[in-house]
Each structure stands twice: as structure tokens, then as C-alpha cells.
Design a protein around this nucleic acid. Structure first.
Lengths: 232, 232
DNA sequence: CGTTCCTTTGAACATAGTCAATAAACGTGG
DNA sequence: CCACGTTTATTGACTATGTTCAAAGGAACG
């Protein structure tokens, strides 16, 4: 039943990301395309927690960058996750009081997947499980970053993770990746102030490790970054 | 089929925790007891990552405290999760290179659950899903703590979370809970040094908020703790 | 009873935060 | 295409929170 040899390179990033995690057959792709036929959008910088609750199944990011953040009573916030094309936003039932919210960073296109199309045994189901697993690993990794890495290592390690995720969706060119984030957003993700992010980015560039500028990041020396961080 | 009215109070903590998350019927309890009939143990302070791989299904902590930690190349470590009685240790396939390990804090008793006994639709399945969901929420919350709370708030918020988890297993007496952790372990969980944990614990006591001593913690003023932290 | 691990405390230091001011980039409407 | 207002980036000086190093006192355990 598997029509293999789907031309990965021609898929849009969101589908390509999923296809990179599990073999998707024609049925899976048809289901994805059907879901993507009823796309919803969220404007840049807008909270769209509310619109998500209308979705019955898993929510798939088709395009754009989104985040989950927690607001503190003094106005500061901590971003716990970024959602890129191909990512799934899990529903988080009940615990709505805990003041987590989903926001769009850039303009975002998303859709709800039909639970039936991701029934156990399908490639799509495998892919969604893999995404979920990766997300949990990413949460743990972020805990390690925030708990034990200083600003330089934290930023380097985090940018490398983003590169890997974007690359698996085919969104990177050479060692360059899109990074449509202000330094303030980066700070909110990494538990730093935007001022300190700015200084740390300068340091990364000065060291010839990573260059961030104009909505893009260039990994100048991945090996040296990894050696510096000392994780793995 | 549901034999309701199971006397919660008489269940051992691990079962009680699960029963608090989903209604368990006699079949569920029988399955749990069967699994617990083949208990495995890990000595205090020992790594038991290896023994877990022999388990075919979900691993349930029956007794004792365990942790998942990540070791850095310079010897420091970050604890990402604590596992208490009633918690499930998820398997983490493949990604074994990432140097996460499971260790016993106290002596630990655990068992592997039969996947069949937790088939979809059973109460046990619901309970396991609920545990998994709570764990993911705990990971996010910890990210917020590490990213945005100072040592005092971090410690207070974390101890309150531990209290809630222990209480749902029936392990607390009044406002007192067991806390078999050295200040070094607390530091590794919270991204602090043991020295600073010590000073911060003094501050918590001085403020009349929480008292930690001799393997126990007493929540002196939960409301004031929550107000101070400013999360939720 | 001695050894080891854990806690407690002090002093000096380091990393990151705060406040503030300026410059650059961006978006919008003329 | 330019002028203007707003957001974002950059830099400096100062402060604060947490770390490091070191030493000493307690508690636990064989």
C-alpha cells in the first residue's frame, strides 16, 4: 500500500518536516493536504490561544513562527516553546488557569488535523508521535540550558537546536537559517534581558561562532559551538 | 463493571496517586497489584538507567525518589525531573546519546506495567495519560522557574509543587511533607549552587514561609508563598 | 569514635540585570 | 521616493543576584 519515493525536496516545509520523522505514504499526504485546505491564520504578534480551542484534533503549524509563553504578574514572560512549520501544538486541556498562552511571532498559518487520519498504525500517527517526543526532549534540553548554561552557551546551543529543526523542514540554505525574532523575544525564550542578548550576540560574532542579523542567523562554526557548550 | 468506592486512604501512595488522577476499578487495581508483585529495586544514590531498559512497558515508581539528570562535560549536572511514587518514567527511545540518566535518590522500588493492562479505555490508561500530561506541564513550569524566578521564588514555587504531588499520593501530614534531598540535589534541580540553596532556605524560614530541615519540609504559609511568586 | 557527608557562614568575585541615552531599521502615509 | 513616528538594536555606567573558594561545625554511619 505504501507508495514510497515521495519527492521530499518539493514538499512545503511543514510536510517535509513531518515526512522527515516517519515515512508518509500517499494517504498520509492526502490527509495533510485536505487539512491544509482549510487553513486558519493569525496575525503577527497576536495571541491566538482562543482560536485554537475550536480545533477538534491536533493543530499543525503550516507556516510562520509561534510560541507558548507564560506571563508573570509583573509583566515579564517566559517563552517555553517555539512552534515552527511542521510542529504540533498540543491542546493542554483544563489547565487554562495557569496563564500559558499561544502567540504568533510572524504571521502564522495553521490547520486542525482530522484525528481519524492519524489513527494508530498510519505513518501520520508515527510522525505526530515523533514530533511529540521531540518536543518533550526539547523541553528537557531547555531546562538544562536555563539551569546550567551561561548566556553565551545558552544562546549558541539554542540556535543550534533551531538550526536542526529548521533544516529538517528544508528551511536552511547552507549554514544560514531564518530567525524572525527580536532580541527581546530571544531574551524571553532564554531567560535573559534583551540588553544581555544583544551583548551576547556580539560576543558570538566576535568569537566567529554565530552571526545573527537582519532576521537571519549564520552558523559560522558549529563544531566549535558544540565543543564550547559541553553538552553531549 | 465499575466497582467504585475503593477506599483511597488505604492504598499505598503510588496507587493512590494514580487513583487520584482517574477512576480506577477493581480490574485496574488488580493489574497494578500484579505488576507490583514483581518489584525491582535500585539502591540509594545509584544510577539505574540500565536496568530500566529491560522493562517492556511503562515503568511505575512504587516507592522512593528518583531523578532524571543531564551531566555536563565539566561535571555539573541539571536535574530535569523528579520521580515520586505513582510517577511514570517514560522510555526515551534512541536518544540515549544525549547523556540523560535515571538515578535513585533514596532506595527506589519500581515495576514495569503490562501494556495490555493499560489498553485504551481502561481507567489505568487514563491515569497514565494524566500522569504524562502533568509531567509535561511540570517541565514547562520548571522552564518558567529557571528562566524568570529568582532563587527565593524558585525554591518556594518548587516546594509547593512537590507538596501538591506528594499530597495527592497521601504522603503529607498537615502542612508537612517528606523531602529526602540534600541541598546539593536541590541545587542541581533548581540551577543553583548548594551554597546558595542554603542561604535561600534560611531566607524562606526567616520570612516564615517554608521550613526545611531533617528530611522534611513544612509549608508555613502557602498563600504568602504563592502571592510572592506571582505565577498564576 | 573516627570518618565521611552535609550544612552553615564569610569574603571576594562574576555574570547578568537595570536604567538611560543614542543610533539604526522599519513601516506608513504623503 | 521621501519624511516621520515607532520599534528595535546598541552602548555605557551602575547595581544586584548568585558563584567561588575556603573554613568550620554537625549529623550520620560504620
Amino acid at each position: 500500500m505504501k507508495t514510497s519515493a515521495i519527492p521530499l525536496d518539493q514538499l512545503p516545509p511543514a510536510f517535509r518536516r513531518l515526512a522527515s520523522l516517519a515515512p508518509l505514504d500517499a494517504t498520509d499526504l492526502k490527509a495533510l493536504e485536505a487539512a491544509a485546505h482549510a487553513p486558519r491564520t493569525a496575525a503577527a504578534k497576536r495571541d491566538f490561544t482562543g482560536s485554537l480551542s475550536s480545533a477538534s484534533g491536533p493543530v499543525l503549524i503550516l507556516d510562520g513562527w509561534a510560541l507558548r509563553a507564560c506571563l508573570l504578574s509583573d509583566g515579564r514572560r517566559q517563552i517555553t516553546e517555539l512552534f515552527l512549520p511542521g510542529d504540533i501544538i498540543s491542546s493542554e486541556p483544563t489547565d487554562q488557569r495557569s496563564s500559558y498562552s499561544i502567540g504568533a511571532i510572524t504571521a502564522v498559518t495553521w490547520c486542525a488535523l482530522d484525528p481519524a487520519s492519524a489513527a494508530p498504525g498510519t505513518g501520520l500517527n508515527q510522525a505526530l508521535c515523533a514530533v511529540e517526543l521531540l518536543k518533550e526532549q526539547a523541553l528537557r534540553r531547555h531546562i538544562v540550558r536555563l539551569g546550567r548554561l551561561d548566556a553565551l552557551d545558552r544562546l549558541a546551543d539554542w540556535l543550534l537546536e533551531l538550526y536542526a529543526r529548521l533544516d529538517s523542514a528544508g528551511s536552511c540554505v547552507g549554514n544560514t537559517m531564518p530567525l524572525p525574532l527580536t532580541q527581546e523575544v530571544i531574551g524571553d525564550a532564554l531567560g535573559l534581558t534583551s540588553v544581555h542578548v544583544n551583548r551576547t550576540l556580539s560576543a558570538l560574532r566576535r568569537e566567529g561562532l554565530i552571526e545573527v542579523q537582519g532576521g537571519r542567523a549564520i552558523i559560522l562554526n558549529a563544531d566549535r559551538c558544540r565543543a564550547m557548550v559541553g553538552l553531549n
